[in-house]
Design a protein around this nucleic acid. Sequence first.
DNA 1: ATCGATGCAAATGTTTTGCATCGAT
DNA 2: ATCGATGCAAAACATTTGCATCGAT
Lengths: 151, 151
Amino acid sequence: MQMKQQVKERFNHFLSRKHLKTTLQRNLVVDAMVELGRHTHVDELYLLLRAKHPYIGHATVYRSLRLLAESGLAREINLGDGFTRYELARQGERHDYLVCSDCGTVTEFENGAVEKEQLRRAHNLGFAIETLKIELKGLCRHCQGRHPNAN
Amino acid sequence: MQMKQQVKERFNHFLSRKHLKTTLQRNLVVDAMVELGRHTHVDELYLLLRAKHPYIGHATVYRSLRLLAESGLAREINLGDGFTRYELARQGERHDYLVCSDCGTVTEFENGAVEKEQLRRAHNLGFAIETLKIELKGLCRHCQGRHPNAN
DNA sequence: ATCGATGCAAATGTTTTGCATCGAT
DNA sequence: ATCGATGCAAAACATTTGCATCGAT
């Protein structure tokens, strides 16, 4: 996959521009993010890396992801559930989440038309929009089955 | 001010509907929120209350604010800076927010058509939606002026 | 050789919880 | 009288930081 190389290259370019060092660990973090191809908790990524590289540290993953976000290649996602997620900033600007209030699973979905309309309205109110997040909370298909009559 | 009474009344109604108790502390929290009239950190509110009522506890403020949010009279704001803010939900049933990433001000706006469309799509994915939140982050008109060339 | 990066553990800061007591119903 | 609510301190939690060592430049 050449996308991995491309992202890694851009990250390394960012690093040297800032007089920071290209390290094995930083590359491992970028690789893992590209391979995952979806948003993830910091800790999830840490465990994933840990499995293959026992000596990588928790702090390093945190530090690398923050750098990756600073470089603009990833972004921080905050769903208000206590921990930070990161996601590669791909082509598009999708931020639509379905969060299951029972099992916590996050499903992404897309609705470009809706987003455009929201952006237009925000603009009319004088806002310079940076990010757009649409968050729906409810029970996913699986958890609906398990709790037929919750509440 | 009669708005304070109105909010307090609605909150108490919510409490009794849930078979929860109306207490001095819960009323103090609501009062403080109405008086402040703006979003605030939990801890800021705690210190404010503490000044007049030395025996109110940290945990109680957290617990009361969460209840207030559950009742729909307030909402949680998460700017990703490590602590939670709360704000009274003025018009009640709005779910679209413009959050200024600089000053934290929250502006509500409405877009019923968009919401309906989102709910429909979520339903198609098998989700039983409980809450819907559309959050746009960016610079409000005021903060745009103050930082002409940020970054 | 320099000086930033790492891993670990300890520290931090916010939010939650256990528990004995208090107080609204 | 019951049983939820409170205050406190301790716990839990994700995240950050200090420091000795490692490694990219």
